[in-house]
């Protein structure tokens, strides 16, 4: 028994009482369970240390002092949940982010895709769409776009709405232009957008073959069979068990000889699906399903 009463009737911790770290871990588990059961957002299998760090940032911002006090606030005040949700969803992205990936995609993947009459691409965790537009531009320049369909999904409906607007901050166009050039872009990047007061409006033709839809990697299953799955720097936020589950989903959703692209510091090496794929590009973490 963890707790007993002293002769004076006060509760004291027994030998099985939790240490400080374990107690905090229990509080975090209770909070995440509460969030899931009350609001339906499932963060229970997110990578622990970054989750813990973000929870404490929210605790401090709300001027609270413990995970349990955040639990109280979150469960009784949807506005706190809203703010926590914003902290927990990471939407870091950029057009032609990691330009060397796009170079590898052009040189190694495009020639393979040319042999297909029709190409289905799933961009999982697409956030506000910057990397979807990048892929659309690349496919257009390679003359492949018309036979491709890109299914771009994210857990968060707000970012998808944002993506569909086709408007991106004007002040980032210089950075994106640099990335585009490094990524092997074949034209002038400015041909793809019109500068307006509030931002850069990208050409509607880029979204002609793109379908945005909400999909939750944690709870939703496979919805089609794909030739390419792009999921870069999304799974790093998941713990090992959830990563394994999502890798199962990707495996089930890929056609034989389908390609899987992860972020450059992610790896199949530490998952049990390693033997199902061959490495097409070790540096850029592009794999091909062979089993």
């Amino acid at each position: 028994m963890a707790v007993s009463l002293t002769p004076e009737g006060e509760v004291e911790s027994g030998a099985a009482a939790l240490g400080r770290n374990d107690l905090e871990k229990l509080e975090i588990e209770l909070l995440l369970e509460g969030v899931f059961r009350h609001y339906g957002f499932d963060f229970r299998a997110y990578a622990y240390s970054s989750l813990r760090r973000r929870l404490w940032k929210r605790i401090e911002a709300e001027q609270l002092s413990s995970v349990s006090s955040l639990q109280d606030a979150v469960l009784h005040d949807p506005a706190v949940m809203e703010r926590l949700l914003r902290d927990l969803s990471i939407n870091v992205t950029a057009m032609f982010r990691d330009p060397t990936f796009y170079v590898a995609f052009r040189e190694q993947i495009v020639p393979l895709l040319r042999t297909y009459p029709f190409v289905r691409i799933w961009h999982a965790g697409c956030s506000t769409g910057e990397e979807v537009f990048s892929m659309a531009i690349l496919l257009k320049e390679e003359g492949l776009y018309d036979r491709c369909r890109i299914y771009a999904t994210d857990i968060n409906d707000n970012v998808l709405r944002q993506a569909k607007l086709r408007i991106f901050p004007l002040e980032r166009m210089q950075e994106y232009t640099d990335n585009y050039i490094k990524a092997g872009g074949k034209r002038a990047f400015s041909e793809y957008y019109t500068a307006m007061y509030e931002g850069a409006l990208f050409a509607p033709a880029l979204l002609k073959n793109v379908v945005f839809s909400q999909h939750n990697l944690v709870t939703d299953g496979s919805f089609s069979e794909f030739n390419v799955i792009l999921c870069r720097n999304v799974l790093i936020y998941f713990d090992k068990s959830l990563q394994a589950k999502v890798h199962g989903l990707f495996y089930d959703s890929l056609a034989t000889f389908g390609m899987l692209a992860l972020g450059s510091k992610e790896s199949l090496k530490f998952s049990r699906y390693e033997h199902c794929y061959e490495e097409l590009n070790m540096r850029e973490k592009i794999y091909r399903k062979v089993l």
């Binding site: 990578a47 970054s50 990471i90 720097n233 790093i236 510091k265 992610e266």
Partner: peptide, 20 residues
């Protein structure tokens, strides 16, 4: 630690994040 990621330590393995 790789450039441009935060490196975090779990009990017996690493995780990376692209937080700010």
């Amino acid at each position: 630690a790789p450039a441009n990621y935060h490196l975090l330590i779990e009990d017996d393995y690493f995780s990376l994040t692209t937080e700010a």
